[in-house]
Nucleic acid binder design. Structure first.
Lengths: 227, 227
DNA sequence: GTCTATATAGCGATAGAC
DNA sequence: GTCTATCGCTATATAGAC
């Protein structure tokens, strides 16, 4: 990772090598982590030259950003599309809004399990890394959709203060993230009883849990005093 | 990381250098990640020689394992102590059992924020890393307490199937993990409205959310059919 | 047990020919 | 745009003196 935060000459124009590099990088990032995947391994897998990464993306960090942007753009767009659809139906329901938020992520996970490996886990990994630049970049990808979903939830839960809503939404997002990133641990721990194979079934369970948490009785004013 | 999984000559015997290495390693792992913290930096911070790590822990991975074991042992013990206490009170309540599970972790986080930095985030990081050995090792640290807590929860929620309980517990653990690992993101996103400063207040909120999720109406038999 | 010195290897980045 | 060759650096691990 070099201190070169600029985007490079050909940021969006199509290129066979460029796409091959993105595919190879994604697969190797999933498999070995961001640091564990060397530019040498990536370019070799892509059938490209070692110098190609620097030409197309400026640096390894530029490549990382491009990999995530390619995945997260469509995910956010799908979330917003479903939210529009839900709100068009008489304002929508709490359950419907949450389905619009969670569904696309679970389906992406299910699809990516069949493909290059678990991209969801990779995304979760970034949020736990010490590299603050990357975390901020990733957060910026998510922020726009949050600015649509949070008001939608607030409208459906007018009895919650904004603070209480943020806390509960944070908890629910945690439940979702755990499922996206560590679902395989549940499968293992439950000895196969719990399976992520069907994303729609998981979505039902997760939304039910999330709704119940959001609707739990608010004891907002006056935090409990403890012994 | 070398392929030397054996524990080394002096695994538990006290040593000034050994402890200094553990302290330095923990602080640098938090700050720079497992890969980002080099043995050079660790030994230098500990005032020890570069070769000391290999002498005391066999390899960098051995050092990593020792760092986590030193933290997680007391955490699990505290959880089980509180669970015993809770169950001694007429079998205990759902809320009390969850407080025994979550409280120690939140308090550890609050304490470690004041100390070497956020160890909780570091632990969360491991669960998202590609290194399966480490994840398995960490999971083994948690498994014994799960084997006490899950039956306790099942006893208090007899109407839930074991499968349903596992899913919901998984979701709740996700809410907790998100708070432990990414609490700072909520603080930032809420522009200070939500603060983790008081672990007991966060515990109240989290337990309320978790209880509501566990108690949500079970529609277990017959998964919903979708369009 | 602790040190110095070094072996061995991998990394990201770049210069410059084509 | 793609290549080769290489620079400059860092890493873990270890041998051998003390």
């Amino acid at each position: 990772m070099n201190p070169t935060p600029e985007t490079h000459p050909t940021p969006t124009q199509p290129s066979q090598t460029r796409d091959a590099l993105l595919d190879a990088a994604e697969a190797l990032f999933v498999e070995h982590g961001l640091e564990g995947a060397s530019l040498r391994a990536i370019t070799q897998r892509a059938g490209a030259n070692l110098a190609a990464v620097n030409y197309h993306f400026g640096s390894k960090e530029g490549l990382v950003r491009a990999v995530f942007h390619r995945r997260l753009g469509p995910l956010q767009a799908e979330r917003l599309r479903l939210l529009d659809e839900e709100e068009a139906l008489d304002g929508g329901t709490l359950e419907g809004v949450l389905r619009a938020f969670i569904g696309p992520a679970l389906r992406m996970k299910a699809a990516s399990n069949a493909g290059p490996g678990d991209v969801s886990q990779l995304i979760g990994r970034i949020f736990h890394e010490p590299n603050d630049e990357l975390r901020t970049m990733l957060f910026a990808e998510f922020a726009p959709s949050l600015q649509r979903f949070l008001p939608a939830l607030q409208r459906l839960l007018p009895e919650l203060s904004r603070e209480e809503l943020l806390w509960r939404f944070h908890f629910g997002v945690g439940a979702m993230s755990q499922t996206l990133s560590c679902g395989s641990m549940l499968e293992r721990f439950s000895e196969g009883r719990c399976s992520m194979a069907n994303p729609e079934e998981v979505l039902d369970r997760l939304v039910r849990f999330f709704v119940a948490g959001l609707r739990s009785p608010a004891s907002d004013p006056g935090p409990t005093v403890h012994s």
